[in-house]
Computed example of a mutant assay.
Amino acid sequence: MVLGYYVGVMPFDAHSFPAHAAAAPRGGRANPRAIAYWLLTVAGLIWLMVALGGATRLTGSGLSIMEWAPLAGTLPPLSQAEWQRLYDLYRTIPQYQLQNAGFGMEGFQRIFWLEWAHRFWGRLIGLAYLVPLLWFWARGAIPRGLGPRLALLFVLGGLQGAIGWFMVASGFDADRTAVSPYRLVLHLSMAFILFGLILWTALGLLRPAPMEIVPQQGKIRRQVVAAFWLAALTMLAGGFVAGIRAGFSYNTFPLMDGQLVPAGYLDLEPVWRNLTANIAAVQFNHRLLATLTLLAAIGAAVAARRLPDGFARRAVWTMAAAIGAQYALGIVTLLHVVPVSLGTLHQALAVGVLAAGLCAWHALRKPPASAP
């Protein structure tokens, strides 16, 4: 809703766009609005990719394809012999031997198709980014100064593909039935970073000039930024919850095994390992950060009442609503012991929180020459 309002209602003010960025490389044909729509489309594709990745992780499908073939892997197996070859490869890893032994070709194909769709969607995102980028460049439609950033975003997208394989490969080790939680968090974090950078770039093209400064806008912006970074930390902690499957334990709320702080919170040595490898500590930290994020978002929403009616106020309220919905969904997911449907939705809504937070932050950003 916020993005739709931003795109549909906020006019693009060509006169307020910085001169060094507004000029096209050739012929003055810069088209910031078209580029913004394209970037928002790519951001939407990444959003769906994150949701699909959540389903892949929760179903244990991510290790079903044991080869990284960026071009040849575009097509699925086209013969029974190829299906058998891939199935035989899968049967060599611990996940099959310890979890899925004997589930047959039908079971293998079920998890294979989900992982293949996840990888295919990643390739589709690459094409959806590269082809329009080359077209805009050939037409001289890219604003001056924006080209290097767009090229860097493409490189980061390719790096994300490599990180994805780096993560998957960790699941082939002799003592593993799932991927490394550290590599999982790296992969998820890069997806969030890419989404955020692309969305922020699009918002800057749609509304290059900060909105009118109003009293106490700086204070409200600081509250929004605090809620945003708390949400980001919560997502990082959530990655470790997913990576060590901590959500399948302590399925009560608000207490954990009858206690506010669970027993065994600091059982591991050295102490820092409790932050990433201790189920009790990882889940408690995620709960704590989520609660702090919710409180910060409520504070920002209350403060936003002082803003005039308009996009900025609605953006802050939408951010708070998204965080509240994510908090409630997290509780429901936990109480139901993380079914695939709710777990996938919870991961997808995290991107919605990120989007809403960035929209609110962007609407309240400082003007170039003066800061309230």
Rank of each mutant, 00 (worst) to 15 (best):
S341N: 12
I65Y: 10
T333E: 05
W272R: 14
I93H: 09
A169C: 03
R273H: 13
L335D: 00
A325F: 15
G357H: 02
P262D: 12
L130W: 04
F12L: 10
L40N: 05
V316E: 01
P18C: 06
A304W: 05
P208I: 03
V351N: 00
A23T: 11
V353P: 06
A304H: 08
A174Y: 13
Q347G: 04
I193Q: 00
A312R: 02
V214C: 04
A304P: 10
L45P: 00
T234V: 09
L156F: 01
I111P: 08
W361F: 10
H20C: 03
A237D: 07
N278E: 09
V340D: 06
I125M: 06
P372D: 11
R207I: 00
V225T: 13
G53C: 10
I331F: 00
I163S: 09
W38Y: 14
V271S: 12
T333F: 03
A22Y: 04
A72W: 06
G73T: 11
Q95N: 08
G53N: 11
P25W: 14
L194I: 04
F311P: 00
I220C: 00
S341W: 15
Y182T: 10
F12V: 09
Y90C: 08
V9N: 13
F192A: 12
T234L: 07
F17Y: 14
R221M: 01
A55R: 13
N251H: 03
S341R: 13
A301M: 13
A151R: 07
L199Y: 06
A297W: 06
R29T: 09
G73N: 11
A174V: 10
G158M: 01
L354V: 12
G164S: 03
L345P: 02
P308V: 09
L48V: 15
E67W: 15
G27C: 06
R305W: 15
Y265L: 15
P339Y: 01
R245H: 13
T56N: 11
Y182V: 08
W200I: 09
L58N: 00
T59V: 06
A178P: 01
A300I: 01
A24L: 05
L294H: 05
N251L: 04
Y96P: 03
L127K: 08
L289F: 14
N31V: 01
G239N: 09
L86M: 15
A246R: 02
M319G: 04
W83G: 06
R245K: 14
A325C: 08
A191Y: 01
Q97K: 15
F166I: 01
V338G: 02
G161E: 04
H20N: 07
A34C: 08
L354E: 05
F12Q: 03
A360F: 03
G171W: 05
A321N: 08
R110I: 03
Y182K: 10
V337R: 15
F103S: 08
S189K: 04
L292G: 11
H118V: 11
T293H: 03
E269Y: 10
R119N: 10
Y327F: 14
A360C: 02
P254G: 05
